[in-house]
């Protein structure tokens, strides 16, 4: 079974994001980049399927130098191949552009399954998996928290508000993974050593046949500004013994905030 996994390198969730003077980018200095947490479930799902059915896993990642460490880490967990898609033309890609780039890289690779995290943490768009499925003309399942693969069929539990939808479909398919699907493993020492010897293939716009097609000026969504959110007004601390505090709070919620 050939499996493709899309991984995204994102700023550590604890990182402080300092918007630069252009108001469009943030300062990368001192920021640690990590695998987007939802992609960890995609990687783990691929590894478990490989252990069960054999096959080959290829990880695809779009971005600049911050991607290399994430791809190495992915390889160290047991993924076979890494493809780093990088080109200055692709910088600042919106989700549809990113999906087009990934589709160009994945198409023709004869993959039975394409796994992506449900959203890239940071951008928080949750768009690429469904767009990728459309561009590759494949069925999909979104926010999957349980997955069974049997021959050329899949059965996925998709999390929706207050329920699970059970989706059945045929492979090849695109699956977006959510928290709860599995417990991602850490790379082993052996894996880390092996990953050092694996080659990361670099593909640019020309290699993907996309030269000049997906540049910033051709995109449908334009980022106009990154703004800091308005500061919340400073709050009120409620003092007193527990009974007074509880009573005061209930009264404030009702009379001042009018929310209960």
């Amino acid at each position: 079974m050939k499996i493709a996994v899309c991984v995204k390198s994102v700023p550590d969730t604890e990182a402080k994001i300092s918007i630069l003077a252009d108001q469009l980018t943030f300062d990368h200095a001192g920021i640690k980049f990590i695998t987007s947490p939802f992609d960890e479930y995609a990687i783990e799902a691929a590894l478990q399927l490989k252990e069960r059915y054999g096959g080959e896993i290829t990880a695809f990642s779009l971005g600049g130098e911050e991607v290399v460490e994430v791809l190495r880490n992915t390889l160290a967990r047991g993924v076979d191949n890494g493809v780093h898609i990088k080109d200055p033309e692709f910088a600042g890609a919106d989700p549809l552009t990113a999906a087009k780039i990934l589709a160009a890289a994945i198409d023709g690779g004869d993959f039975q399954l394409i796994l992506c995290g449900q959203q890239g943490v940071g951008g928080d768009n949750s768009q690429v998996p469904a767009m990728l499925a459309e561009l590759l003309d494949l069925p999909q399942a979104t926010l999957v928290v349980a997955l069974e693969i049997e021959a050329d069929k899949f059965k996925a539990h998709c999390e929706i508000e207050g329920a699970h939808q059970i989706v059945q479909g045929t492979l090849p398919a695109v699956i977006s993974t959510g928290k709860g699907l599995n417990e991602p493993r850490y790379p082993s020492i052996k894996g880390v050593m092996a990953a050092r010897r694996k080659e990361i293939v670099i593909k640019d716009a020309a290699a993907l046949g996309l030269s000049g097609q997906l540049t910033a000026s051709q995109r449908k969504v334009k980022l106009i500004a990154l703004n800091a959110p308005p500061a919340r007004p400073s709050g009120k601390m409620i003092a007193g013994d527990p009974a007074t505090q509880a009573h005061q709070l209930a009264r404030l919620l009702r009379e001042e905030a009018k929310v209960i």
Partner: peptide, 21 residues
């Protein structure tokens, strides 16, 4: 959850802009 499944797909099919959340 359902619009995350549907809307980006429809946006890709019509090659249109999409902003979520």
């Amino acid at each position: 959850a359902m619009s995350q499944d549907l809307i980006p797909r429809a946006a890709a099919r019509t090659d249109s802009a999409c902003v979520t959340d």
